[in-house]
Structures are given as structure tokens and as C-alpha cells.
């Protein structure tokens, strides 16, 4: 066999090699579903926090922060489930209600978690709220989160001179699905 023919045969061998028994369309079925936990917010304060500078009792204190949820590609495309977990110790003699609200950039409320009522003298109470699939879309359109801490009306006023605390720990469990 001449050298030229041998080279041609060799090249043909390379060029005619193939891929068998594979299905690249399976890539469309690939789904990776990690679960992440994250601490979000925590605070501890005593009964002074519910009094203004003039010494008047306030029924609610509140704070807000941007969430960037609406700008996050990771959240927009892949977040499939979110559980928000509250762990609360309420030494006050009044019920505390926690309300977590979300707003869009226009200031319109997009979503609110069911208010959590923490009875007096609760120690390490656990309250978990699952955000449903439909509510997730509202959550994803949010750019601001606001937490209201409401001191419910009661028969006895709170006494700032008594050392009692409210401890709130908020964390999230987030399920993602990375697929096409």
C-alpha cells in the first residue's frame, strides 16, 4: 500500500469517527437543586425601645432596608421556595406581633408575611412561614423589606425600669433550581 493511500486512510479514520449512544438533549432535563440557609436579621432590645424621647409608649417600631431581590438574577431565575423562620423570646408582659412586608421601587406593597403573634413570656418560640409559589413572584418584584414590631394593647403598661428583653432571630431557608 502506497504511503499516500495509507495517509488518506488514516485521515478518513479520524474524520469518520463518531459519537454513538448519547443524547445531548438530556441537558434540557438537568436540574440542580441546592438548599441554602441564611441568617437574615437579629435584634435584642429591652422595654425602653417602645418609649419615645418624651417617655410616651409607642405601639410600633419599624425599620426598612433595600433587598435587591428584583435585581438579582439568581433569585429571579432560580429561587423556587423560601421559608422564613422566626425564633423569638418575648419576656414582655404583652403580646408582640412581627410583620414582615415587602415593597417595590414605587413604594407599593408587593407582599406581606402572615403576622406572627408572640405571646408574653415566650422563650425560643419558633415560627416558620413558607412563601408560596405565587407569593414568590411578588417577593421577587420587591426591592425593600420592612419589619414592623407591634406592641399589642394590654391591660398593663410595660415598665422600662424592669429588665425584660425581646429577642428576635430571623433566618431563611431557600430552595433553588438551576435548569434551563
Amino acid at each position: 500500500m502506497s504511503p499516500k493511500i495509507q495517509i488518506v486512510l488514516l485521515m478518513l479514520f479520524f474524520l469518520t469517527s463518531c459519537m454513538d449512544d448519547v443524547d445531548f438533549d438530556q441537558a434540557n432535563d438537568l436540574s440542580i437543586q441546592p438548599k441554602y440557609v441564611a441568617s437574615l436579621v437579629h435584634f435584642t432590645f429591652d422595654q425602653h425601645k417602645f418609649f419615645d424621647n418624651l417617655g410616651n409608649e409607642q405601639f410600633m417600631i419599624t425599620d426598612a432596608a433595600p433587598t435587591q431581590l428584583n435585581n438579582s438574577t439568581l433569585v429571579q431565575e432560580n429561587l423556587t421556595k423560601a421559608d422564613v423562620q422566626f425564633k423569638v423570646t418575648n419576656q414582655f408582659n404583652r403580646t408582640i406581633v412581627l410583620v414582615l412586608r415587602f415593597y417595590n421601587a414605587s413604594g407599593q406593597q408587593t407582599f406581606v408575611l402572615n403576622p406572627i403573634a408572640v405571646l408574653p413570656n415566650t422563650v425560643d418560640g419558633i415560627y416558620t412561614q413558607t412563601i408560596s409559589w405565587s407569593d414568590l413572584n411578588n417577593l421577587k418584584n420587591s426591592s425593600i423589606a420592612r419589619l414592623d414590631v407591634v406592641l399589642m394593647a394590654g391591660a398593663t403598661p410595660i415598665d422600662p425600669t424592669v429588665n425584660k428583653i425581646l429577642n428576635v432571630q430571623v433566618s431563611g431557608i431557600f430552595d433553588f433550581n438551576f435548569n434551563n
Partner: peptide, 8 residues
């Protein structure tokens, strides 16, 4: 986590 100061 973040520790808010509730001072708007």
C-alpha cells in the same frame, strides 16, 4: 444577619 436599629 443584619442588626436593625429601628431608627427611621
Amino acid at each position: 444577619g443584619i442588626e436593625p436599629d429601628f431608627d427611621l
